[in-house]
């Protein structure tokens, strides 16, 4: 063996040893690699080869061997330290992942708003847009234009808050029908959500102010069939699969008038105390717009016909969330609002 061959062997072992040592992932593997690349046998084989070199080359060979030794031990030591620190990290207590997430305050829309939004979304698919009107109204918009006979028992159903000089708090969202018909030409397809007022003291099922959603469609050729079809479609989209029925009713501003029932949400139509054994639950009032209403808003009632409906999202919210008392919707109790926030 020449000194060059010896050098080559030292260099190749240096590379091989580094590779093996760095490949070790834990203390055991490192010890295994150490015995493999730097055992006494390996060292002796180098000493032996060194001894066989010509005397002139031994000094140089000794230096090379020493360099190899320093290198391998340095790599071993550094790897040992790396593994130890890794192990230390692993030995630390683990994150307790069952601890709760960082909390944020829960915000949300009022349950009545959620119901209104859902109603609006369904009618939007059917080409309706949203119209709004004032909560303070004149007697003309709230009653006269809607064909309410003066001094008639029909007014008993609308116990009104009066503000004086012909002003009042609207008792229904129907004045928005008149306002829309006066401001926009047919075809009209609008939905009017809003707050309305009746002089009923608070109890478990009454509130002096409550939400209502009005709907109105006016065009040439609109008929009772459109009313029935649209409202039935709405009921099925809103409640899921349900039967509906239409009953005769009376509103001064529609004729024919009809109330729509869906199968009782609590008993599924079998009859229970909530539906007084009928299996049906009243959902909305509707009807063909009375010709006088169209005429009051300056619309030719011979040319145009229309249908309208009104419903109470508060009652639906009570059903949906199983609320025993309507006052929950008005108290603004943080605990309740957080419960129902979506």
């Amino acid at each position: 063996m020449t000194i060059d061959e010896f050098r080559t062997r030292v260099e190749s072992h240096k590379a091989e040893a580094s590779q093996h040592i760095l490949g070790a992932l834990d203390a055991n593997a490192l010890e295994e690699q150490r015995t493999h690349v730097w055992s006494r046998t390996v060292q002796q084989s180098f000493s032996k080869a060194l001894g066989e070199l010509p005397a002139d080359d031994r000094r140089e060979a000794g230096r090379l061997f020493n360099e190899l030794k320093v290198h391998v031990e340095a790599v071993l030591e550094s790897r040992r330290a790396e593994i130890a620190s890794l192990q230390h990290a692993l030995d630390k207590p683990k994150l307790d992942l069952t601890m709760p997430a960082r909390a944020r305050w829960r915000g949300g829309k009022h349950p009545v708003t959620l119901v209104i939004d859902e109603i609006v979304a369904i009618f939007r698919e059917l080409g309706f847009t949203v119209a709004l009107g004032p909560e303070s109204e004149s007697e003309w918009y709230n009653f006269s234009a809607l064909n309410f006979p003066a001094d008639h028992p029909a007014m008993d159903m609308h116990d009104t808050f009066y503000l004086g000089e012909g002003a009042l708090l609207r008792t229904h969202t129907s004045p928005v029908q008149i306002r829309t018909l006066q401001s926009s030409p047919p075809p009209i397809r609008i939905l009017a959500p809003g707050t309305v007022f009746r002089r009923d003291p608070f109890d478990a099922s009454h509130a002096p102010a409550f939400a209502q959603v009005e709907g109105l469609a006016v065009d040439e050729g609109i008929s009772f069939v459109d009313l029935k079809a649209t409202l039935t479609l709405f009921a099925q989209k809103f409640f899921g699969k349900t039967r509906t029925r239409f009953r005769p009713s009376y509103f001064p501003f529609t004729e024919p008038s009809a109330e729509m029932d869906v199968e009782c949400r609590l008993c599924g139509g079998r009859g229970c105390s909530a539906c007084k054994g009928t299996g049906w639950m009243e959902i909305l009032g509707s009807g063909m717009v009375h010709p006088s209403v169209l005429e009051a808003a300056g619309i030719d009632s011979e040319r145009y016909t229309g249908w309208a409906f009104g419903m109470g999202p508060g009652r639906i919210a009570m059903l949906r969330y199983g609320l025993p008392d309507i006052r929950l919707l008005y108290d603004s109790d943080i605990r309740f609002l957080e419960q129902v926030a979506e």
């Binding site: 119209a131 065009d219 069939v225 029935k228 009953r247």
Partner: peptide, 16 residues
Amino acid sequence: YDALPGDIRPYRPGTT
């Protein structure tokens, strides 16, 4: 009312 048909018929979009 129940004897009247309830099929969706074509409609025109509103102006609002």
